[in-house]
Write a protein that binds this DNA or RNA. Structure first.
Lengths: 232, 232
DNA sequence: CAAAGATAATGACATATATCAATACAACTA
DNA sequence: TAGTTGTATTGATATATGTCATTATCTTTG
């Protein structure tokens, strides 16, 4: 046990484990436990970086994490905001063993790292686990298609509307919500410059669709925002 | 055997089966064979439509197929051009049993349809098959990330360059290549209007980067096109 | 508390891209 | 062959969006 490791409890009794592990028996959970490392990240810390070897399955138990592709000209595209209890597993695991996006804590966070070999072994030996995993991968893929359409076929107001609704529904789950995402992050989620993102937010504010004060957001007119999302 | 069905041969001896089936034994291939249907599509025919139930694994043995998301305002986004011998399997199979994109033959095509239950059963019973499938899904996912960056962070010349290189390297595999894709299709692959796509093609032509005559394309300066792809 | 540094907001301007309208061209069809 | 239809091309114009410069606001730190 080193400074980075914190064996709070075993996987079998853990209340914070990802739902994908529900189908695992005691012995299987023990296997995971053996190679498991619990790590604490401070807000702003890089968890893993695009282009580096991908050796672990990561399960987030506390905090929030942004995953993003590092593109050209120092521009990032945020793919998702991960919250507890969800996991992060890139496609590299079954391809080139590399990370194809980066992950950064946007709040103080705690994550369990599980050795990739253990994970892969369970996929091979437990069909329920494999199927659950495929289900997760598929849902992620479906979400990506929605993201494609939002980013490529909607104009800026529609894209910002999508981001606000995503934060409300999928990330924070409350209507007045506080976020630690910067304006630049909001821009990186909607594929535009931060100036443009700010401008659209101001327009929504002027039209009383949202209320914004610093990083506190409240969606005042959800129907209108939904409409803007639909009409692009 | 009806008019749509053409039992040319069994899966076990088939030379045109997707590489993912390589790990299956005779008995497993026979299972697939039992529910297998071979269908011929004419160019322009819809193979399946977004929003309809997804009941089959589809393996393309002849021809070419475009898969595309139907977005807003009758705008489509082409995700990929599928050639033999590759398969098409949407994420709906492990989620909501629905198609999340449409598929249309762009050449006269032949496909084998395999019942989804049979497919899922093999995923559960043969770990090699499951792992191979996960590998394929992962590669697809990695490609999608590249597409994200191309579509959201590159300007029109960069996006058209990506499309031309994709057609040359991944679809036709030859340098002077003939395509059955319309200008509208090229636009739908690069997320722009067809007028814009045509204009960029003309610019490339004027700069002697490519030669275009109707639907015959030749990339004269691959390096330059790669550079345009990189610099956005 | 003041200074410094980061982030946010705003305005003026440049430019990338879409839209619209007109024409050209090719491929069918009567 | 003429006519008809769909696709491709081009030009003029409108608009969405990015860039740059400036100021404002907040946060950290000495």
């Amino acid at each position: 046990m080193n400074q980075y490791t914190h064996y709070s409890k075993g996987c079998a009794t853990c209340q914070d484990k990802a739902d994908i592990f529900a189908c695992l028996c005691q012995a299987e959970l023990d296997q995971i436990d053996e190679t498991r490392i619990e790590v604490h990240f401070k807000a702003g810390e890089l968890i893993f970086k695009q282009g580096t070897p991908n050796m672990h399955f990561l399960c987030l138990t506390q905090g929030k994490v942004k995953t993003y592709i590092e593109g050209y000209n120092n521009k990032n595209l945020i793919l998702s905001i991960v919250k507890p209890i969800e996991y992060i597993l890139g496609p590299g695991i079954y391809a080139d063993q590399m990370h194809h996006f980066s992950a950064m804590a946007i709040e103080d966070s705690v994550a369990c790292l599980v050795d990739m070999q253990t994970f892969k072994k369970l996929i091979r030996t437990n069909p329920d686990f494999a199927e659950d995993f495929l289900r997760k991968v598929s849902l992620q893929s479906i979400y990506n298609y929605e993201l494609f359409i939002s980013l490529t076929q909607k104009q800026m107001p529609g894209r910002i509307a999508d981001v606000l609704l995503y934060l409300k529904d999928k990330v924070y789950g409350t209507n007045p919500f506080h976020t630690t995402l910067s304006r630049q992050d909001l821009a990186d989620m909607s594929g535009m410059s931060k100036e443009s993102a700010i401008r659209i937010l101001r327009e929504f504010k002027d039209e009383n669709i949202i209320h914004v004060s610093g990083n506190d957001f409240e969606i005042l007119n959800v129907d209108h925002l939904n409409k803007i999302s639909k009409t692009g």
